[in-house]
Design a protein around this nucleic acid. Structure first.
Lengths: 209, 209
DNA sequence: CTGACCTATTGAACGTCGTTCAATTTGCTG
DNA sequence: CAGCAAATTGAACGACGTTCAATAGGTCAG
């Protein structure tokens, strides 16, 4: 009988990877970021802590991979959003998908994006996932620039994505709240409406913004 | 002789508070966020870990107070920035002070603003410090709105502050970097220029942004 | 089928962490 | 000078991330 230790064949390495990521998500959602410990994840998937270190370099690495997975899903959530000629409308549709995606996994999103990837460099595969989200924004911004390939859409997509990140980040941490309870959504909508109006104003006046 | 333990009168409670905050800053600057431990701070000021718990509720509380102190200093760094009739110019001046303030204490700023204040609510004294910074931005935004007291400048100040936070946050973590090395400064300048242009465009066209 | 290798898995172990608290010493008050 | 209050300590607790010798199961050559 299987008494103490030794090799198992309950799951392949890929299955274990998925199990671990999924368990990590559930732990964070249920008990908050500080409950994400190696022992908790290992216990949740029915393995010992040491096994996690066959799958990930360390806990930071697990979080980085969770971060990547979340970026994938954000990309999926934004993909397929209809794109028309009205840049503002395009972005508003994306915004609401963006915010509801985050809102449904607030704890997870916060942990994972406030996590600083240690070491010197963010992995390449991670940056590719970011690029994918950026490119969706670029598509939505294209009408305002009359092109999709220029420097303008790319820069604006980055600026907007980072800005939305900041609005969510400060908003959800409660650090911006005040007497007038301006919601995260209202701020984000204001950002997009005003920024897009700025792009169009600059184009019409031939101004370099 | 003073052999083992007992009350000391080397420093007042206020002095200890300052010593601890200062030691925490130096530890973070020198050895990074993960070196900020109760034992390290206590050792740096020549006291035992337990003493910190006479000054702060816990380590989170210490970080929150450090956060507050940093907000004060940011307020001081932005205060006195000349304000003219050109909103964009006003904000650009503020932006460069903002970014150089953060850049000089990057580790500290990141730790302290990625730190989620635990419990339910952000303390009132903290929000007041945020309001102070916001009000500086409001002043700079006033010319674009032809008034300073309306809902417009306040909302825009919040939107811009949060957006800049996001740009710095993603930029400094390396999560946005790419082939074309767009710098944090360029993105922030683009945000401000475009956003201000948007405000003015909306005002001229009577559009509600 | 068998035995030797390989690899996944374990659980104990190490050092460190945040935090608590009885014990102790000092300053202060009357 | 007695006695109380406050401050300080250091040991202790449980939990943490991480490592690793030991062990069990799978694999495969012969």
């Amino acid at each position: 009988m299987e008494c103490k230790v030794g090799r198992r064949s309950d799951h392949s390495k890929e299955e274990l990877y998925e199990l671990a990521l999924q368990a990590a998500r559930e732990i964070i959602d249920a008990d908050g970021p500080r409950a994400l410990t190696a022992r908790n994840v290992a216990g949740a998937i029915g393995y010992s802590p040491g096994t996690l270190y066959n799958l990930f370099e360390n806990l930071d690495d697990l979080i980085t991979h969770l971060n990547g997975r979340l970026l994938d899903e954000m990309g999926d959530a934004l993909a397929g959003t209809p794109v028309g000629d009205d840049t503002s409308e395009n972005l508003m549709l994306l915004l609401h998908r963006y915010l509801s995606f985050i809102g449904e996994r607030a704890n997870l999103w916060n942990l994972v994006f406030e996590h600083t990837i240690p070491g010197d460099r963010v992995p390449t595969w991670y940056r590719r996932k970011v690029e994918k989200v950026i490119s969706i924004l670029e598509g939505a911004l294209a009408p305002a620039f009359h092109c999709i390939d220029g420097e303008g859409p790319n820069r604006s997509a980055r600026v907007l994505l980072a800005s939305l990140h900041g609005i969510w980040s400060l908003g959800s941490s409660g650090k911006l709240d005040m007497m007038t309870s301006e919601t995260t959504t209202e701020m984000a909508e204001n950002l997009i409406a005003t920024y897009v109006a700025g792009i169009e104003a600059c184009r019409e006046h031939g101004n370099a913004c």
